[in-house]
Simulated assay, not measured.
Amino acid sequence: MRLSGKLGQEQIVFALAVLLCLVFSVTLPGFLTGNNILNLLRSVSILGILGIAMGIVVIGRGIDLSLVSLMAISVGWMLNMAGSGMPLPMALMLALGFSLLVGAINGWLVAYAEIPAIFATLAMGTLIYGFGRYFLIDLEVAYLQGSAEVLSWIGQGSLLGVPVPIYAFALICALGHLFLRYAVAGRYLRAVGDNLAAARITGLPARPVIVQQYVISALIGFCAGIVTAAAVSSMNTRLALSTYVYDVILVVVLGGIGLSGGRGGIRNVIVGTLLIGVLLNGMTILNIQYTLQSVIKGSLLLLAIVADSLLNPRDEQTAQQGDI
Rank of each mutant, 00 (worst) to 15 (best):
V271C: 05
R187A: 04
A123K: 01
M54K: 06
A197N: 12
L28D: 00
T33I: 12
V232S: 10
I128S: 00
I137A: 00
V13P: 05
M235Q: 11
G51S: 09
V141P: 00
G277M: 12
A224I: 09
V306C: 04
R190D: 06
G322D: 08
I216G: 03
M71E: 06
A240Y: 08
L41W: 04
S25K: 03
L20A: 01
I73R: 00
L259Y: 06
P313R: 00
Q11V: 11
K297C: 05
L292V: 14
N287A: 14
I105D: 08
V248W: 07
I216V: 12
G48E: 15
L274E: 01
I166G: 05
V110R: 03
P208K: 04
S309K: 14
Q145R: 14
R238G: 06
T273D: 07
V75G: 00
G272Y: 07
T318I: 15
L100N: 03
A113W: 15
L159C: 06
S309V: 04
A229G: 02
N36H: 13
G176M: 02
P313H: 03
M283H: 02
G277W: 15
A111T: 11
Y244E: 08
Q213I: 15
T121M: 05
S74V: 01
I210M: 07
I285T: 04
P205H: 05
Y290A: 15
V248D: 02
Y129D: 01
G225W: 04
L3R: 12
S99W: 00
P208Y: 10
V164Y: 15
S84C: 10
V248Q: 03
V253R: 12
G282N: 11
V68P: 15
